[in-house]
Each structure stands twice: as structure tokens, then as C-alpha cells.
């Protein structure tokens, strides 16, 4: 089943082409990698999928629904959530509240109902808290609920971002360099966690990553970008031998 389909999407920034006629297909319960040198436009692809920037050309479909041009919060609501290359936790909210923000869209009561403490509000607030705590436990963060995120070690901040991305109950998860700044042991843990999450929650995942071991190990399909253009796609073992990919990474001289 096709989860996500990008049809020749492009984005220009002041005449510089960040993403040029890129196309991809994401299948259900698979992990796909987008790789490429720095500045190849990988993060821009995520920003286009999640509606941060409008597309210049192309269309994006999600579970058979055209989501092109929808505002970000609607796209999140439909089931696409993400993490960020440079961690973007809310520094003035404690760990639990960071998770609560992401669940706001799932609870339907209004601020007026909240103020009179309507029974439904109490029930749903309880559910939110329970869910948040269960995700903290899932990522080994249960002790840190009341702490502020930037007092946590870097590796735990990365996990908290993952927990927050799961709070909105996504079908598709976009991970922007989830292994950046992690040590080899943490990367090993991350691989296990991602595979476990994928199975338990029937998730589809797209990863932008530089860490080749991680990408080669867990991705079923890879897309390779260079200067905004797709230069290769295929299974990891084929990509490793692809001439154009090697050239993009090593330069023309090699």
C-alpha cells in the first residue's frame, strides 16, 4: 500500500533550486532513507511534505488523499509527524508539557469546557497524561517528566523528540538525522528502537541521515539527492555500488 507519494515536487529559494522535480513513493510499514551530501535538499523535502513551504510544482498524496497545499497542522492531524535536525523542543515547557502540545489536536474539548472542568475534559486530560507517561516509559524517560528538556543529555533530547512525534499518533514518521550527535552505543539503541516502533505501531518511516551504517541496515529503499535532484533510487545494496552516488559523495576527481 502506498502511504506517501510525491510527484515531481520542486522548490526554489530566490532562484536557487533546493529541490528539483523530486519523486518518491513510501510503502506501508517500511523504512525509507533519503541520503545525499550536505545541502542536497533532504530537509527541504521534509519541509515540503509537512507543509512548511508551499510547493512550486508537483503534488503530494497521503493514503490516497491529495495533501498539497494543506496547512502544517492539518497534515499533522492526518498522520504525518516529524523530528528535527537540530532538536526543536520547547525550552520553556517541561518534558510532559512538550508531549502534551503534540496531543492537543487529538482532544476535542474547547477552552471553555476546560475552564468549567467538564467531565469529558477530566477524562481526556487523564488519557493525555497516561499516554504521555507511557511514551516516556517507552523511551526510558519516565524519571524526567518534570524536567526542562534542555537540562537533559543530548541523547535523551533526541529520544524525547521521538516520543513527542509519536504523541500525535502518526502513520508516517519523518526523522531528520536522528543519529546526529549520538555515540555508537546510542546509535545501536536507536536502530533497535526504530525497528521495534515500526512493528509495534505499524509505522512507516522516512529517514534523512548521513550515518551510512544506520541507513544501510534498516532502510528498504533509498533515494539519493544531490543539488536538489534525485540521482539514484533503489535498495541499499544497489545504491552502494551506484556510480553517480559514489561520485556525488567522493567528488569528480576520484
Amino acid at each position: 500500500m502506498e502511504v506517501l507519494k510525491a510527484i515531481s515536487i520542486s522548490k526554489n529559494f530566490g532562484g536557487v533550486s533546493a529541490v528539483d522535480q523530486f519523486a518518491m513513493v513510501q510503502r506501508e510499514n517500511e523504512i525509507t532513507g533519503i541520503i545525499g551530501p550536505n545541502g542536497a535538499g533532504k530537509t527541504t523535502v521534509f519541509n515540503l511534505i509537512t507543509g512548511v513551504y508551499p510547493l512550486d510544482t508537483g503534488e503530494i498524496w497521503f493514503y490516497g488523499k491529495n495533501i498539497t497545499g494543506l496547512p502544517s497542522h492539518r497534515i499533522t492531524d492526518l498522520g504525518i509527524t516529524r523530528t528535527f535536525q537540530n532538536i526543536r523542543l520547547f525550552r520553556n515547557l517541561n518534558v510532559l508539557d512538550n508531549l502534551r502540545v503534540a496531543y492537543g489536536i487529538k482532544v476535542r474539548y474547547t477552552v471553555w469546557e476546560e475552564m468549567i472542568r467538564w467531565p469529558r475534559v477530566k477524562r481526556e486530560e487523564g488519557e493525555t497524561e497516561e499516554l504521555a507517561r507511557s511514551y516516556l516509559a517507552y523511551f526510558g524517560l519516565e524519571k524526567y517528566g518534570d524536567m526542562f528538556p534542555y537540562n537533559l543529555p543530548y541523547g535523551l533530547q533526541r529520544r524525547l523528540e521521538l516520543a513527542r512525534a509519536l504523541m500525535a499518533n502518526p502513520k508516517l514518521l519523518l526523522l531528520d538525522e536522528p543519529a546526529a550527535g549520538l555515540n555508537p552505543k546510542e546509535i545501536h539503541q536507536l536502530i533497535e528502537t526504530l525497528l521495534k516502533m515500526k512493528e509495534e505501531k505499524n509505522l512507516s518511516i522516512i529517514i534523512v541521515e548521513h550515518h551510512m551504517e544506520l541507513v544501510m541496515n534498516i532502510c528498504k529503499m533509498l533515494y539519493v539527492l544531490n543539488f536538489g535532484k534525485k540521482i539514484a533510487e533503489g535498495e541499499p545494496k544497489d545504491i552502494q555500488r551506484n556510480e553517480a552516488v559514489l561520485q556525488a559523495y567522493l567528488g569528480d576527481e576520484g
Binding site: 509537512t50 512548511v52 496547512p71 502544517s72 497542522h73 499533522t76 492531524d77 509527524t81 516529524r82 528535527f84 526543536r88 520547547f90 525550552r91 520553556n92 515547557l93 508539557d97 512538550n98 502534551r100 502540545v101 503534540a102 492537543g104 489536536i105 487529538k106 482532544v107 474539548y109 477552552v111 476546560e114 475552564m115 513527542r164 500525535a168
Partner: peptide
């Protein structure tokens, strides 16, 4: 204080006050 500390929109408001771009990617209608 109650609205800002405890309610859904209050938490979203506080989140947006440190970073106005990220909440919409968490499903918040900014």
C-alpha cells in the same frame, strides 16, 4: 495563570512563545 498553565491552548501559547514555527508541526493551528 490557570489558562496558561493547564489548558490545551495555554500550553500551545507557551510553546509558541519560544518557537513559533514548530507548534504547527505538532498539530497546533498557530
Amino acid at each position: 495563570t490557570y489558562v496558561l498553565k493547564r489548558t490545551k491552548v495555554g500550553i500551545a501559547l507557551r510553546a509558541a512563545s519560544t518557537d513559533i514555527r514548530t507548534p504547527s508541526l505538532m498539530g497546533v493551528n498557530i
